[in-house]
Amino acid sequence: MTSPDPVVVTAYFHPRAESRDAVLSALRTAIPRVHDEPGCELYAIHDAPDGSIVMLEKWSSEAELDAHGSSDAVVELVAALEGLLSEPVAVTRLTPVIVGQPSRGAL
Rank of each mutant, 00 (worst) to 15 (best):
M1W: 05
M1D: 12
T2C: 12
S3H: 04
S3E: 06
V7M: 08
V7A: 05
V7T: 08
V8R: 13
V8Q: 14
V9G: 02
V9C: 06
Y12E: 14
P15K: 03
P15T: 07
E18F: 05
S19T: 10
D21S: 06
D21T: 15
A22R: 10
A22P: 07
V23S: 01
V23A: 03
V23E: 00
L24V: 14
A26D: 06
T29G: 03
A30E: 01
A30H: 02
P32H: 08
R33C: 03
V34Q: 06
E37I: 00
E37M: 06
E37K: 05
P38R: 01
L42N: 12
L42C: 11
Y43H: 04
Y43S: 04
A44T: 15
I45P: 15
I45H: 15
H46F: 07
H46M: 12
D47A: 09
D47I: 10
A48T: 03
A48Q: 02
A48D: 05
G51R: 01
V54K: 02
L56T: 13
E57S: 10
E57D: 14
E57Q: 15
K58Y: 00
W59S: 00
A63W: 08
L65P: 09
A67N: 07
A67Y: 04
S70H: 15
S71F: 12
D72G: 10
D72Q: 15
D72F: 11
A73H: 04
A73Y: 03
V75P: 10
E76H: 15
V78E: 09
V78C: 09
V78L: 08
A79H: 07
A79Y: 08
A80M: 03
E82A: 13
E82N: 13
G83L: 03
L84M: 07
L84Q: 05
S86C: 06
S86T: 01
E87P: 09
P88E: 11
P88N: 06
P88D: 13
V89H: 13
V91C: 00
V91H: 01
R93F: 07
R93Y: 06
L94E: 05
P96G: 01
I98D: 10
V99Q: 14
G100I: 05
Q101I: 07
P102L: 02
S103W: 14
A106P: 08
L107V: 07
